[in-house]
Nucleic acid binder design. Sequence first.
DNA 1: CGCAACCTTGATCTTAATCAATCGTAGTGG
DNA 2: CCACTACGATTGATTAAGATCAAGGTTGCG
Lengths: 261, 261
Amino acid sequence: MSATQLSVKNHSKSSEHSKVIRLHRSAPQAPTTGDRDRDIFAIARRLASDCRLVAGGAELFAEGERSDNLYVVLDGWLFLHRILEDGRRQILDFALPGGVLGYRAHADTPFSFTVEALTDAKVAVIPLSRLKDLLLRGSGCAVALLDAAHESLLEAFDNLTDLGRRTAREAVAHFLLRMDRRIRRTGVRSDDAVMPFPLTQEHMGDALGLTAVHVCRTLRALRADGLVEAGRGRFKILDREALAAEAGIFLDDPYDTRLAS
Amino acid sequence: MSATQLSVKNHSKSSEHSKVIRLHRSAPQAPTTGDRDRDIFAIARRLASDCRLVAGGAELFAEGERSDNLYVVLDGWLFLHRILEDGRRQILDFALPGGVLGYRAHADTPFSFTVEALTDAKVAVIPLSRLKDLLLRGSGCAVALLDAAHESLLEAFDNLTDLGRRTAREAVAHFLLRMDRRIRRTGVRSDDAVMPFPLTQEHMGDALGLTAVHVCRTLRALRADGLVEAGRGRFKILDREALAAEAGIFLDDPYDTRLAS
DNA sequence: CGCAACCTTGATCTTAATCAATCGTAGTGG
DNA sequence: CCACTACGATTGATTAAGATCAAGGTTGCG
């Protein structure tokens, strides 16, 4: 009996349809410029066998599954998570366009986490075998993937610090700063307006090791203090300096410059 | 003023001496067999400019520092951590022989965490520039590094789950299983005897987001239930099955086979 | 022998979880 | 167009897991 079947909360609400379409040459557009080989979108375009559309709420792949593929997010938001037997869920990371998902040393190693789409999403499907060929032959591709992997690792380290050693208020503040930065980095700009933010408070809670109820109270407090605007799938940081101070970091600290911009 | 200077607890107790010695050809021995290119020790041997000895308690590098190097652990234990302004410490991961530390996309990006040696340790020093050359030319090296990066990521994900969604008892049980597996994997075997385990309860607490006091109580309980023997730099799992059950995983679950071995 | 780390244990306090409604809003179908 | 439904956000009351504070107790080493 699988862990998922035993789960108490059912986190996969919506219909599980996800389409696979053959790629016509040039299907995924390159959202940003790049040094050809070093650009993850260029690599995806070159190596992809398919392009897959995943409806919001549907799974790209699930813990325990095996597959010969790895994926590059072209569009949309997804999240990585694990669900314990009794239904507790830990969100491990969020994936935005440019994110690389599902790398494994061997194709027969099962995935150790589930990836679910937060919004309708589009991902390039890359056969591991094809990738390994390219890596052995050598190209900037190795560097791009290594960079992506380490970016994920740093994100995980930030998350670890939030979970282990920050209070709910500090963690939520830090989380919002991180998400804000990632959104702006992907170039999904919406200027100085509030930005699309498809997470529910339950998603935030499951990412930060809190309950949705407590996230709600924490956000209310941050809102009351005039630090953020939040609600209904959008949020806006009103006072970045002050929010960073709440998170316990200093934006101008030469030692922690990562969230500065 | 750096974060480290403001820290309340000083975690770097011992003398900070760390020696750099020129490598004579063949200095680091290869602890395990490998497919030349794919073996991280072989790569370290080939690319290392130096071999550095770090005394237990000394730092290999610190958050905020810049360096052109990345490191491969040849011998000993180290740990990655961050310290918040008020002294709270989060341990991000432990590094055993074969571990890769300090990769960054650009040599001018400062380290975002500190690495301190837990025991006297020996690390190969690899210039990032030399590595990038090799990656562009292509070799199994890329695959080995990518695999190492993803292993770290999975370790971080496990840690994340412990911190966010497991109780102290579950987290400690899971942590011990993971460390046990990693120790056995590195081949630092000591047969069926108790194995060397240089972590203090404070290290465990800082890795799991708990206080040392609570780790102590939790270990006492696990000991009382006959699941582990622990103390004084050693520990032994007495009942792997039962400990896994405490951790909320099933060793024979096809979906979670990672700790079975 | 005598620190200095670590580990233990007890008492008390806090943060966040849990339990339990209520409300608002966006769909949905009649 | 409007009741109906469902999911998400809110708010309050209570509980519990783990933190904090405060002593001792061990072990090992100079």
